[in-house]
């Protein structure tokens, strides 16, 4: 999920603690700050600290002046071979290609386990919002194709787009049956996304602020971990007892708009409800069902109805954008 969803989930978790609400009424914002901060903490640790110290073995740095998909494919295949022969995990970083303040040359990497090969194709130039610049795809560059020295086991998407900001990392690890297992963004959602780390943070919070803070810290942190299980990647929940990331439930992608907004809005309603029920002497009275009706069902229902009315008979533009990034038949032709 996006950062704001995790953050507000942490705040919502704190709002279930009566002492947090009472302290807030008394002018102390600590527990809510802790809840929100710890809700965002796992990703903060990964994206703002850990990844800069995560060592790579192979850096793929395409030349923007000389776009060569074959070079990229060969490097990836080489990394797979290194993993197979050395039996050690090999980490490969695919760097992005910045061509303007707001422009990035996109390329797409696809692993084909059936044919035991990797394919690379340069896509359009996209802006930071990942919206393609029209007529910017360098079609003449073709598809780079490299044979992999051994079978591979995918743990994430078959196709990876490399475009904005920091490029992705793959960890390649020999599996013991002659294959190499591919892990996407191995530095992410590992030790930092475990209940163990949450417990350690909670213990530190206990020492500084007391057990109430520890509960809030652990609740906020755990909310993040549980939300992450809804996606594809999952996380290593019981580090160091467990060594690998659990697979997620594949119910959503982290950037999907509706689940994110749904989570944010639901958390806002829950926070409002908790503030209401734990606060004394509020002159208005309403039930939880009424809050859900007026705060959720009616406005969202009205919005959805109007959206449906406006979109009746219109082709789905969103799908066409995503499909254009898929290899599909054009890759094999």
């Amino acid at each position: 999920m996006k950062g704001i969803s995790h953050f507000i989930s942490g705040v919502a978790a704190a709002s279930f603690c009566p002492w947090a609400v009472q302290a807030a009424i008394d002018g102390n914002p600590l527990y809510f700050i802790l809840g929100g901060a710890c809700g965002l903490m796992p990703d903060t640790v990964d994206f703002k600290f850990y990844r800069f110290f995560y060592r790579h073995d192979v850096y793929v740095d395409p030349d923007p002046e000389n776009l060569d998909p074959q070079f990229i494919a060969d490097e990836i295949a080489r990394a797979v071979g290194m993993a197979q022969t050395s039996k050690k995990p090999i980490r490969i970083k695919l760097n992005t290609l910045r061509v303007g303040t707001d422009y990035w040359q996109q390329y797409v990497v696809k692993f084909d386990p059936k044919n035991q090969e990797v394919l690379v194709r340069f896509g359009p130039v996209v802006n930071t919002g990942q919206v393609p610049v029209p007529d910017s795809t360098p079609k003449e560059k073709g598809i780079g194709r490299a044979k992999l020295p051994c079978p591979i086991i995918q743990t994430y998407d078959a196709t990876t787009r490399v475009d904005i900001f920091d490029g992705p990392t793959f960890a390649m690890q020999a599996s013991g049956q002659g294959a190499v297992e591919l892990h996407f963004l191995p530095w992410h959602r590992n030790w930092s996304h475990s209940f163990t780390v949450g417990a350690v943070l909670a213990a530190i919070g206990w020492l500084i602020w007391g057990w109430q803070a520890a509960v809030v810290i652990f609740a906020g942190f755990s909310a993040h971990l549980l939300e992450d299980q809804l996606g594809l990647m999952g996380s290593n929940l019981f580090f160091p007892i467990t060594k690998k990331r659990f697979s997620g439930l594949h119910m959503m992608r982290s950037g999907d708009a509706i689940p994110n907004f749904g989570a944010v809005w639901t958390c806002c309603l829950l926070i409002f409800w908790n503030l209401y029920r734990f606060s004394p002497a509020i002159p208005y009275h309403f039930t939880f069902l009424r809050l859900v009706l007026y705060g959720g069902v009616i406005p969202m229902g009205a919005y959805g109805l109007v959206l449906w009315l406006l979109n009746r008979g219109q082709p789905d533009e969103k799908e066409s954008i995503e499909l254009s990034d898929e290899f599909g038949d054009s890759m094999t032709n």
Partner: peptide, 23 residues
């Protein structure tokens, strides 16, 4: 695609690219 053909890039000054490597 060269940078100059990207929308708005031809209006930018020269010092947006590295003189050594062109990045």
């Amino acid at each position: 695609m060269n940078q100059a053909s990207l929308p708005g890039q031809d209006s930018q000054p020269q010092d947006v690219t590295c003189v050594e490597c062109g990045h």
